[in-house]
Design a protein around this nucleic acid. Structure first.
Lengths: 156, 156, 156, 156
DNA sequence: TTTT
DNA sequence: TTTT
């Protein structure tokens, strides 16, 4: 019954556009890589160290569509989600693991018209895409038929 | 560069005791698995789904020693840290990836004397181990010579 | 507008039982104080300092009822919510402000049967109250008629 | 001894420049208001509701100086900190309370040269102020003599 | 008003 | 491999 918490909070830059996958039944997911950077001084050697960490972000359904529409490679975004490690088999039949962040909430942080791709006609002032918060726990349309197993059985 | 955030917040149960690794120069790390649980009702099938997610927690130096001493298999603990995916080679020379949570902060949540292992003599009243918060960003002993590369070049 | 984040994460002990308030239309809120503790050594004087911080937690509707039923004075609980400062007038007509945490998520952390009050008959095994996570963003019953203004116009 | 967590995570826009206060002994704090916005649809009335929440941010010492230097009114910033409610007496001798966020970490989110004030010569490429993360738990200069009571006895 |  |  839980009593546990699994929460990830990231602010980073997208490394690519959102790749969509559509399932039968109307569900969809979007995937994109997110980079966070870390800088510190190695206390032993005194040298400045710079690391980039890449995160696999997974978004679903309506949230995925919003991300695909407004989030472009290089954009800064706030992501809140859950850690999930998927097990899959490589072409040699060996077990492989991939850790993803299942996005539950996001907020675009890139200013409109800068770093948001060029010529995106949908970015009307009324839509304010650069500042769109999204919470995937919002009451969804029950008719949409969200099926968790769609995501868990991904062949990629 | 930065301007980014990489934060993980977990509350879960340890799946094993802390395994310590000591490096030349006095540094050390501790590792342990942490389980978080998720329960929800599949909206399509209506069935109750229960998932366990396992997280690889890595703690360093003094924090690692405190965890090894007081954290026992099955204990509940709050972990705050950063996501880091390590690349390593398996015995066939293939690239493999493992995502870890580098623990920056923790707080024991298991009540004293229950679920904290049996007969742990070190749990004196003055230590109050079950409620010990820890922040790895606290000013550490500069003489300790923390070496980041110790952790990054792990052969396991 | 948004593009903003307002998030509070607390683990603490309740200082009192949950006080419920019921509104016309079926909505309700529950309130309780939550204590977090801080200990540190004053770097100037070298003395050990211990502070208790009290937080005003506000929960709504079904979540409030669950808290009232299972959360007892002294229990440990994880709270996730939003900061909200309410303005009100004291008996002299002066503006006063009160900052609250509007709870969006919670998880009970006190073990069953310990620190959960005595003789609470409702704590059946099937309910597993001590480990009940709750997310107020879950699709609520639309018939419930949640009215935000109920909470904003509180006379207390 | 704690076993508690008191954490606030905010992304918002500053409502004013940073106001500095210097103490004897070399300590200092900076204060500034931060706005977060919330939009939702009232489920009862169906109307769109927009709320702005103001937070009192308090930063210390070196972090305060960095904020004063690079954070301008209107800038977007990520703040991580702790909730603290201060008690003070108004001019009639009545107890008043003010809740503040004691900033432990921050990251500037406004792009360089936009929304960061005009003519800030210090914003050299090497400083990269728009993306400067800061953690107040970093080992501070012990000679700095941080005195917690400075902040707790504020006359404002 | 909590907890250790 | 945890917990409820």
């Amino acid at each position: 019954m839980a009593g546990t918490v699994n929460k990830v909070i990231l602010i980073g830059h997208t490394g690519d556009d959102v790749k969509m996958h559509y399932f039968e039944g109307g569900n969809s997911i979007g995937r994109f890589p997110l980079a966070t950077n870390e800088e510190y001084t190695n206390r032993t050697t005194g040298e400045r160290v710079s690391n980039t960490e890449w995160h696999n972000i997974v978004v679903r359904n309506k949230a995925a569509e919003i991300c695909e529409k407004y989030l472009k490679k290089g954009d800064k975004v706030y992501i809140e989600g859950r850690l999930k490690t998927r097990k899959w088999q490589d072409d040699k039949g060996l077990d492989r693991y991939s850790t993803e962040i299942q996005c539950m909430d996001f907020t675009f942080l890139s200013p409109k018209g800068e770093g948001m791709g060029q010529g995106n006609a949908q970015q009307g002032a009324s839509a304010q895409p650069q500042a769109q918060p999204y919470n995937t726990n919002q009451p969804a349309q029950p008719s949409q038929g969200v099926n968790e197993s769609d995501v868990d059985d991904l062949p990629f």
